[in-house]
């Protein structure tokens, strides 16, 4: 190689130190075929990502290996797959730490989506859920501004995390509620929904929240936080779902069992301090459905697990909490913040 030592700023760029990476890859040839695992060993630069290793396998060892890829820089969201059971972007996952630890990783397709071939999943159910939440701005009949919507940085920041989503599906892959209820809208679609509910230019907030509050919506989330843990872009979908819950409460949309459940907790805090467990069941699922739970409740009561409803546990000094609740309710915004259509935000004429 020619002497490039004068290129001091690029030092390291020509450093081709290599390492050997061994991968176990889940292979599946398609409908009717049996899935199996194959082991590959590749020689790659020490800077190699999981995607670099898969490319090396496909180029030099086995052209039949199927996986999606495009941008190679964690922007396009194509290369979501599971490594050791957890969803990652292949292009964002450096392999050196695993080599150093002497650990052979296992690569498999994402979960909660049908597998087409090898590491390629069918994203159709994913897209249909994204479409279901109406992923575009609806001004709610408000006249479009003459020039542009004026959105302050603070207002824009309301949805800045959710706007980072690259639709890779890593969160959906790990969603536990979706494993149990495949119709659950799931973390990606709900984070996208908040991206519009929280958008100060959007005027369809109430209708959106009404749709999202029903079956398979906001209140299906079991708060396992796998989505936050797996998202490669810091969207924190679970936090977005919680924001939708708060917006639904602000709009008074609290008919769903999940919202009623949350309401019992909110009220318990200033009506005694601790959760009123005996109120939780009837107030969540309604008095009629609660009757069907009586045998179950008696079983719990026999083990001493049902606190006395007539003498509920009371925390000391709970009057403080009641005052705090009243003060905060008086401070809470009653309406969603909206963008100012056309008015300048810096005091000068545009």
């Amino acid at each position: 190689m020619e002497d490039r030592s004068h290129l001091t700023t690029l030092k390291g760029a020509y450093d081709h130190k290599m390492m050997e990476v061994t991968l176990r890859v889940r292979r599946y040839a398609g409908e009717g075929a049996r899935a199996h695992t194959e082991t590959y060993t590749v020689d790659v630069p020490v800077t190699a990502t999981l995607l670099d290793c898969l490319d090396e396998i496909k180029d030099k060892q086995d052209g039949t290996l199927a996986f999606r890829k495009s941008c190679r820089m964690a922007v396009c969201g194509s290369c979501g797959m599971r490594m050791d059971g957890g969803a990652v972007l292949a292009c964002k996952t450096a392999m050196k730490p695993f080599v150093d630890a002497g650990h052979t990783v296992t690569v498999s397709p994402m979960g909660n989506l049908p597998v087409i071939k090898d590491l390629v999943v069918d994203m159709a159910p994913f897209w249909s859920k994204i479409r279901a939440i109406k992923p575009y701005l609806d001004t709610g009949g408000a006249k479009a501004p003459e020039k542009e919507w004026r959105v302050t940085p603070v207002q824009g920041h309301l949805v800045s995390k959710e706007a980072l989503c690259i639709l890779c599906g890593c969160c959906v892959s790990e969603c536990i509620s979706m494993e149990s209820d495949p119709d659950f809208l799931g973390p990606a679609a709900l984070a996208k929904a908040y991206r519009f509910v929280g958008d100060v230019r959007d005027g369809d907030t109430r209708a959106r929240l009404k749709d999202l509050s029903g079956a398979h919506g906001i209140w299906d989330c079991t708060r396992c936080y796998f989505c936050n843990q797996r998202c490669p872009k810091g969207v924190d979908p679970r936090d977005a779902i919680a924001k939708l819950g708060a917006e639904a409460f602000r709009e008074g949309l609290t008919r769903d069992e999940g919202a009623r459940h949350a309401k019992v907790f909110v009220n318990s805090a200033h009506k005694g301090g601790f959760l009123r467990e005996t109120e939780l069941v009837p107030k969540t699922i309604g008095p009629v459905a609660a009757i069907t739970q009586i045998p179950f409740a008696l079983q719990l009561a026999r083990a001493g697990k049902v606190p006395n409803p007539l003498a509920p546990h009371k925390a000391k000094d709970n009057a403080e909490v009641k005052r705090l609740w009243k003060l905060l309710e008086s401070q809470a915004p009653k309406q969603k913040e909206r963008a100012n259509s056309g008015a300048p935000i810096d005091g000068t004429e545009s």
Binding site: F249, A259, V266
Partner: peptide, 12 residues
């Protein structure tokens, strides 16, 4: 008081 069990965190 109760920590809110994630429910108060979500609703309020």
């Amino acid at each position: 008081t109760c920590c809110g069990a994630g429910d108060i965190h979500e609703a309020k």
